[in-house]
């Protein structure tokens, strides 16, 4: 089987400082990988390098494109990469306002991404938007409201609808539940888990919350000071951590 994403020796430096370095992995279709580590460990830098928001100083990020098979997205032209991020890729930001257009209605936010890939029929777009608001548990009578009138959890669900409406194959998520109440987090996680299964999505999720990866991720990558210190099956890494730092991370979680 061809990997959906093949990452080889990615490195990003901020001057003398290491952002992340020596990162390589293969992600296969339908797999969800979690990247965990403390603030400043390089996990967001890595995610941004993978998603094309940052240009890595070294390495390649090959994606299995529909037309030409594996292609290095780092050396790809800007328009090609932008096309990928509108179609087969999706990016869920920690702060919904970074992923939404705050002065456009909820329906418009979902419809806009469809229009970006060529949808023109108003009725169809409205219908798809209505369907997706329902799937992310936003009442349809809020379709014409702007996200500014939504709660944090609703904004995050709207961002997810906007991202998934085009049926992407790979979703990047940066702390998708960060800053939300615990009960709101649980609902969002449950929703994400259902969607990942149902759509057979591949995803890379950056988080510092081990409960999030326990629920969502098949496998884990643990980062510390820009380096990957441990990888493996999620339950194995969490239940039998090998590296000093992973042991510290796992033992630091309070049990409730």
């Amino acid at each position: 089987m061809t990997p959906l994403l093949q990452v080889t020796d990615i490195a990003k430096f901020y001057g003398q400082r290491i952002g992340c370095t020596g990162v390589s992995f293969d992600l296969y279709p339908g797999e969800v990988m979690g990247i965990v580590g403390e603030s400043g460990s390089g996990k967001s830098t890595l995610l941004n390098c993978l998603a094309g928001h940052l240009t890595p100083d070294r390495g390649s990020v090959c994606f299995d494109t529909r037309a030409d098979g594996l292609r290095d997205t780092v050396s790809m032209s800007e328009p090609e990469r932008r096309m990928l991020s509108r179609t087969d890729w999706a990016f869920v930001h920690q702060h919904a306002r970074d992923g939404l257009r705050m002065n456009v209605s909820a329906g418009g936010n979902v419809g806009e991404r469809l229009m970006a890939v060529g949808a023109r029929h108003y009725g169809d777009i409205r219908e798809a938007a209505t369907d997706w608001l329902g799937r992310v548990e936003i009442s349809v009578d809020r379709i014409d409201d702007r996200p500014t009138a939504f709660s944090g959890g609703m904004q995050q669900r709207l961002q997810i609808a906007r991202n998934l409406v085009t049926g992407p194959r790979l979703v990047f998520m940066d702390e998708p539940t960060g800053g939300l109440d615990v009960s709101v987090q649980a609902r969002l996680l449950d929703l994400l888990r259902g969607l990942v299964r149902e759509m057979n999505l591949s995803a890379i999720i950056v988080t510092h919350d081990l409960a999030v990866v326990r629920l969502l991720a098949d496998r884990l990558m643990v980062m510390k000071d820009g380096h990957v210190v441990e990888t493996g099956l999620t339950d194995q890494v969490l239940d039998d951590p090998q590296h000093r730092y992973t042991q510290l991370l796992v033992s630091s979680v309070l049990q409730v």
Binding site: L233, Q236, D239, Q242
Partner: peptide, 9 residues
């Protein structure tokens, strides 16, 4: 048992 399941390494 956990090693058989791959839960422990």
């Amino acid at each position: 048992m956990r090693m058989l399941y791959g839960n422990y390494l």
